[in-house]
Every structure is written in structure tokens, then in C-alpha cells.
């Protein structure tokens, strides 16, 4: 069901527990679909392992919310969102993070039955970079 997403069991368990309240709230309010929630958890687990990150409610709440809502929107076939020049500038040299997001989104595409557009990948990358930077500042 999940394409080629690698779900490291320990990372996946940590993610599902850490963000259970948030994702439950978003799903119950109808803003996030069950499929998008599942993909969000798998994508986060994959990124946690591949980039050696630890996603927590404290450092990643905005990223998790954004990812779940974006995946719901993409799966629904909503019109593409507008690209922000400011956001694009923020990640101009962040090839490693962008490539990681793009790879995970390529794996999500067959499940979503949609290609994930570049602006969506850019916004996800901006969020991811802020977590990478924070973890780096904290010596993690």
C-alpha cells in the first residue's frame, strides 16, 4: 500500500506515538484523511532514518501538520498552491533535504495517485530544514 517507503519499525513507532494527538485532532476535524495520516507517519519515519533526525512535538509540530494537510490536499486533487519566492530562497542551497523530500514524495505518489508538485516539495523542504538546523544548533 505504501510504495517504496521504508518504514523503520522503531522510527515509525516513535512517530505514531509522538504525533498521535495532533494527527487524531486533524483527522477527526476532517482536515486530514486517513490515507494522508498514514503516509505522513511513514514519510516522517523514512526521513528520520535517512537524515538521522528525531521528530518531536516540540520541534516538528508545524512540519507534521503541514505534511498531513498537504498530502490530503494533493490526494484530493486540489489546485496547486502558489510558490513563495521567500520560501524558495530559504532552501536554494539545501539540496540534501530537498532530495530527501522529493524521494519520499516520489514513493508516496503511487499511493496518492498523484504526482507531488514542486511547490509542495519546496514548502515541505522549508519546514524540514528548520528542524535540521535546530537539531544541528542543539548538537544533535
Amino acid at each position: 500500500m505504501t510504495g517504496d517507503l521504508t518504514a523503520d519499525a522503531a522510527a515509525h513507532a516513535q512517530i505514531t506515538e509522538e504525533f498521535a494527538d495532533r494527527l487524531e485532532m486533524l483527522e477527526e476535524s476532517g482536515q486530514v484523511s486517513k490515507l494522508a495520516r498514514r503516509l505522513t507517519e511513514l514519510a516522517l519515519a523514512d526521513l528520520a532514518v535517512s537524515l538521522d533526525l528525531r521528530f518531536t512535538e516540540e520541534n516538528s509540530a508545524q512540519f507534521v501538520t503541514h505534511l498531513a494537510i498537504a498530502l490530503t490536499r494533493i490526494n484530493r486533487g486540489d489546485p496547486p498552491i502558489e510558490l513563495s519566492a521567500v520560501a524558495e530562497e530559504e532552501i536554494a542551497e539545501r539540496t540534501r533535504e530537498r532530495d530527501a523530500v522529493a524521494r519520499v514524495m516520489r514513493d508516496c505518489a503511487p499511493v496518492l495517485e498523484r504526482t507531488v508538485p514542486d511547490p509542495e516539495i519546496s514548502y515541505m523542504t522549508v519546514h524540514l530544514c528548520s528542524i535540521v538546523d535546530l537539531q544541528s544548533e542543539q548538537g544533535g
Partner: peptide, 16 residues
Amino acid sequence: TCWSGGGGALAAATAI
């Protein structure tokens, strides 16, 4: 706020 303004900015407020 969020970067795109469309989703994450008000997701929790919308739910609650």
C-alpha cells in the same frame, strides 16, 4: 502562520 498560509497556519485553530 505557516510558509504557505493555507493549511498549517490555522489547522489546530480550525480543529479546536
